[in-house]
Design a protein around this nucleic acid. Structure first.
Length: 616
RNA sequence: GGGCCCGUAGUCUAGCCUGGAUAGGACAUGAGCCUGCGGAGCUUAGGACUCGGGUUCAAAUCCCGACGGGCCCGCCA
């Protein structure tokens, strides 16, 4: 049985088309599936071919004439019910009964795995996301990064990949140094969650550092000691960072995001991996002693790859950030001799065991060694990411280069402008704040809809609706577009929102609950309404929707699909009584359809990391 | 100076990779639909491809050039 009903219909179209073309003796130069498209109106057909435009050149006849000839020659087979010619197009109509039966049977059989496939079978993909400096709470912009990464991880798992999620913690950067200084100097600390408190004292201290040169000097000293690993500073920085990360993880837990591994910059640096990577690069002709203004530094020459040169080691012997990223990227692919050491960091509420790099840990060869690497990193870092990826080519790792992806996303803005840690414009827009507000607003709506429900139900419902709204709003826009955060948009409960999809799911569940049992009888020709047929087709397309979203690394496509299905279900609901259907046969068929919608909405919601409630 | 990304109705957004039929959807606005399986709903009306050129039988889509917004080009991260 096919696990991709619409794909099967497409294959049947191609076979029918191919048969007709060969009977006519018409040669074509393009792959047939590239000539297929969806007609603008379902009345015209379900799949169209525009091949007659191509044929027109060879045959010196008008596309319309060719379409008429071709249309006559096509013999419907499989899921293709009939063919119509309209102008320059040959349009294929799906046999809706057979498609419905195939789709519903597949859904009923596969259930939770409907939509999944095995295109990534045997391949491991490593996704790095979040990677926030451990000196502050996550604001909603970090939330976008984390949710994009998390949905990618879920999508790729559904495609059969083995997925490992990393969160990289830079505990050696300037922000950590400044925060450590602030932590020491500011005695009266604001009473807040640890990461919020750090964020507040950091923005406080940053202004002072700019005004007072001796503080700037102190930051530089701390930074140097972090680099060298000497004295108490590195230990304290790590401790502070640890506490901050634990607080950050509470936030991501609440969003339903988990990590397999936390990788600490200090562990990476002290593992010896940098030295190894540096030596490897030195052995190539691309890493050279700088000249002129770069005298004393080591410069990676990338002009062969169409990139500007990049200093990797400063004249004082310290490595720049990008150098560390290169070493990390090599490790991700299992291309370093040096092994990192790991220990269990924590068990998350969803059951995930999160591991962490650690000096005192053990080598664990199940981590890393990926076939594909996806870094969810802001679009402004395109150049450094290119440097990292091209370093792989420098080392002769062409395959690894080709399997390195920068999932670039634009930042979230406030109506007043950019987020700034220094200016503290994030205050009030942390993920914690936004979820809090979202849950409060959902609570009011839940109260309205289920006044008689128990307190614990209302609390749970408000939580999953609020979180669903926030997550949906963060992934529903294509990553390369900037989002301007607005409360009324992020927390929308109306259609085209997370809660709207949840609502449709709950409604489907409600119908099935009322109906008590579903008879799995053949649907035959039951689905006559356009609303029913549209649902069948959408359900059939779910596996393709997942593949597109996953393989193109465009998680927003999944959100759009889910919203489309939810809206289509609402339209169906208005016109098609299920339990009180005109005949028992129709009732059974519609119940199967509703059940199919339920399964697909649930699977789609779970892929988005949003709870699929049976009641709300 | 060089490079990258974005520009679609009052607002937000899909489509651009791979050119093809009346550019899809949402919010807001106007008009309808509630004694109905959950109205967080449905139906319906009006409204958009930034601008010029070019390629093509055909351009929102490809190419060139403007314009507007953002970003990168650091021995910062």
């Amino acid at each position: 049985m096919s696990t991709n009903p619409w794909g099967q219909f497409k294959d049947d179209v191609i076979r029918a088309l191919d048969g007709a073309l060969s009977r006519l003796g018409w040669a074509v130069s393009v792959p047939l599936d590239a000539t297929l498209e969806e007609p603008p109106d379902p009345k015209l057909g379900d799949i169209a071919t525009r091949i007659c435009f191509d044929l027109a050149k060879l045959h010196r006849k008008s596309p319309a004439v060719l379409a008429a000839e071709l249309g006559k020659e096509v013999r419907p087979e499989g899921l293709v019910e009939r063919v119509e010619v309209a102008g320059n197009y040959v349009n294929f109509f799906v046999d809706i009964s057979r498609l419905a039966e195939l789709t519903l049977q597949t859904i009923e059989k596969d259930d939770r795995s409907y939509g999944c496939s095995d295109v990534g079978q045997g391949k491991k993909v490593l996704i790095e996301h979040t990677s926030v400096n451990p000196t502050k709470p996550l604001h909603i912009g970090h939330g976008r990064n984390a949710v994009i990464g998390d949905v990618m991880a879920r999508l790729l798992r559904a495609l059969g990949y083995q997925v490992e999620v990393h969160n990289y913690i830079d505990d050696m950067g300037r922000q950590v140094a400044e925060t450590l200084l602030a932590y020491r100097l500011i005695k009266e600390k604001p009473k807040a969650k640890f990461d919020h408190m750090l964020g507040l004292i950091y923005s406080d201290m940053h202004g002072r550092i700019e005004r007072e040169p001796e503080l700037e000097e102190e930051v530089r000293k701390i930074l140097a000691r972090l680099e060298q690993g000497t004295g108490v500073d590195p230990k304290q920085a790590r401790r502070l960072s640890e506490k901050c990360v634990r607080a950050n993880l509470e936030t991501t837990d609440r969003l339903g995001i988990s990590y397999d591994v936390l990788v600490w910059e200090s562990d990476l640096v002290r593992s010896g991996i940098l030295g190894e990577t540096l030596q490897k690069l030195k052995d190539t002709k691309y890493l050279v002693e700088g000249t002129g203004e770069y005298a004393g530094a080591l410069v990676l020459k990338l002009s062969d790859f169409g990139l500007e040169d990049k200093v990797l080691v400063r004249s004082d012997g310290t490595a720049v950030y990008t150098m560390r990223d290169i070493a990390y990227q090599l490790w991700k692919f299992g291309k370093t001799e040096v092994e990192l050491k790991f220990r269990l960091h924590s068990r998350r509420p969803d059951g995930t065991r999160t591991y962490t790099t650690s000096q005192r840990g053990r080598i664990n060869k199940r981590f890393g060694r990926a076939d594909m690497v996806i870094n969810v990193v802001g679009a402004e870092q395109k150049f450094p990411q290119e440097v990292v990826f091209n370093s792989l080519r420098v080392l002769g790792l062409e395959r690894e280069y080709e399997n390195s992806y920068h999932l670039a996303y634009e930042h979230v803005w406030l109506p007043s402008g950019r987020f700034s840690g220094r200016k503290g414009t994030w205050i009030g827009f942390t993920v914690d704040d936004v979820i809090e507000e979202a849950v409060a607003r959902s609570r009011a709506v839940v109260e309205e809809h289920a006044p008689g429900a128990s307190e614990s139900f209302k609390r749970r419902a408000a939580e999953f609706v609020g979180v669903g709204a926030v997550r949906y709003s963060l992934i529903s826009t294509s990553p390369e577009k900037r989002i301007t955060f607005k409360w009324e948009e992020a927390l929308s409960f109306e259609r085209n929102s997370g809660p709207a999809v949840q609502y449709s799911h709950a409604r489907a569940c409600s119908i099935l609950r009322k109906a008590k049992t579903v008879e799995f009888k053949p649907v035959d020709g039951a689905f006559k309404l356009p609303q029913e047929q549209r649902l069948v087709k959408l359900l059939a397309k779910f596996p393709q929707a997942i593949q597109e979203a996953g393989l193109r690394r465009q998680p927003h496509l999944l959100a759009l699909y889910a919203a489309e299905l939810a809206v289509a279900f609402n339209s169906f609901y208005e016109v098609a009584p299920v339990i009180e259907a005109e005949t028992p046969e129709l009732r059974d068929a519609r119940l199967r359809l509703v059940n199919g919608v339920r399964v697909v909405l649930r699977n789609a919601l779970e892929l988005m990391g949003i709870k699929a409630p049976e009641r709300m």
